[in-house]
Design a protein around this nucleic acid. Structure first.
Lengths: 191, 191
DNA sequence: TCTCCATGGTGATAGCTTGTAACGAACGAT
DNA sequence: ATCGTTCGTTACAAGCTATCACCATGGAGA
C-alpha cells in the first residue's frame, strides 16, 4: 500500500469515487422523481448495472447514502450563498439566489429544511456547513447596514422559508397567486 | 340487509368504525414516534392483535390510511380555528392557537404542511377543508379591520409557517433562541 | 515477471414491508 | 334453523434492507 499523496489519486480510489458519484447522481434523480422516502439502494444499484448488495461496498447502508446527499445539499447551498456574497450581492439578491437554488430541485431543498425524521440526527459537519450558511447570510445583513443584522438574518430565514416552502409544496396551487410576487413582497419586508 | 337509517348504526358497521378508529389511533402514535414514512399497516394490525392482511378489510391500503389521517389532521386544524374564531379570537389569539395545535403533535402539522410526496395528490375534500381554514383566517383578518385582509391572511400563513415549521423541525436547536419569542415577534408584524 | 491479498462483484439468505388469494369461521338477517 | 355477507386466518409473490460466503480481479511488492 503506497499511501500515495493522501488525495484519492490511487487508481482504486479513483474508481471508488467514480462509482460513489454515479450512485449519488442516480439517487438524486430518484429522489427528485419520487421523494427521499422512496430512495432504494437496490434500485440505484440495478440502474448502475450491478446487482443489489454490490453498493454496500460503497455505502454502509441507505442512511449513509441519504446523509451524503444531505451533506451535498448543504454544501451546494453554502456555495451558492458564498458565491453570491462574493459577487457583492445585497439581501434581495441573496434571497433570489436562494429561490433559484430551491426551484432548481425542490426535493433537495426539502432534504435540508423539510419534514424531519424523528429518529435522525444530523452529523456534526452538516451543522457546521449550516452555520457557514448562516454566517454568510449574517455577513450580507451586516454589509447592508441594517439596524439589527441578527434580527434581519432571522427574518430572512424564517419569512423566506415560509413563502418558499409553501410554494415548493404546491400549497398555492388552487388559489390564484403569483409565488414570485409573493416572494418579492416578503423580500421587501427585510431591512 | 336492513339499510337502517343510513347512519352507521348497524352492529356490523359500529364494529367496523370502531376498528378503523383504533387503527387510526395506533397509526397516529406510530407517526408521532417515527414519522409518516415509517407507518406500517402490518405493525398497526399486529399491535391490534390481528394478523397482517386483516386490516386490508378496513383500508384499501397504506395510502388510504394515510389519506384518512391527513383528512383528520385538516379537520382538527379547521375545528381549532373555527372554535377560536367563534370565541372572538383576534389575530394573535388565532396565531397562538395554531402554535399550540402544532406543538401538540408536530408530525400532524407536517402531515399537512410538510414535505410533499411527488406522486401524491390530495383528494378534493381535503382541499375543501383547507379552504375552510383559509376562510376562517380571512374572517378574523376582516374582523380586526386590517387595511388589506387578504394580504394580512397571506402574511399570517407564510410567516407563521416559516417560524413554526423551523421550530418544529428543530432547526433552532443549536443557536440560543427562544422560539416562542420569535413566534410572538412575527405575530407583531401582522397588521 | 510472478505472487498474493485487499477489493469488488456475485448469489443465497433472513427478515421486514405491501398487497392478493384462498379458505374457514362467525355473525346476523330472513 | 338456514344461508350469505363479512371477517380473520394462513399462504404467497414481489420488493426492500442488510449480511454472509464465495469467487474473480487487479495492483503492490518481491
Amino acid at each position: 500500500m503506497a499511501r500515495m499523496a493522501e488525495s484519492g489519486t490511487t487508481p482504486r480510489e479513483r474508481y471508488r469515487n467514480q462509482v460513489r458519484a454515479e450512485a449519488k447522481q442516480l439517487a438524486w434523480e430518484q429522489i427528485a422523481a419520487d421523494g427521499a422516502s422512496a430512495l432504494s439502494l437496490n434500485a440505484v444499484a440495478k440502474r448502475m448495472g450491478m446487482s443489489g448488495p454490490a453498493l454496500y461496498r460503497y455505502f454502509t447502508g441507505r442512511d449513509e447514502l441519504i446523509t451524503e446527499l444531505i451533506r451535498d445539499a448543504y454544501r451546494s447551498l453554502a456555495d451558492t450563498f458564498r458565491d453570491a456574497a462574493a459577487a457583492g450581492a445585497d439581501l434581495p439578491d441573496l434571497a433570489r439566489a436562494l429561490r433559484r437554488w430551491a426551484l432548481a430541485d425542490p426535493q433537495r431543498y426539502f432534504l435540508i429544511y423539510g419534514t424531519p425524521v424523528p429518529g435522525y440526527h444530523a452529523p456534526a459537519d452538516t451543522t457546521t456547513i449550516s452555520s457557514e450558511i448562516m454566517a454568510t447570510l449574517l455577513g450580507v445583513c451586516g454589509a447592508t447596514d441594517s439596524p439589527a443584522p441578527f434580527a434581519t438574518a432571522l427574518a430572512f430565514w424564517t419569512r423566506l422559508h415560509g413563502v418558499l416552502s409553501l410554494e415548493l409544496a404546491g400549497q398555492f396551487a388552487g388559489m390564484d397567486l403569483d409565488p414570485e410576487a409573493l416572494f418579492e413582497a416578503e423580500i421587501a419586508t427585510l431591512r
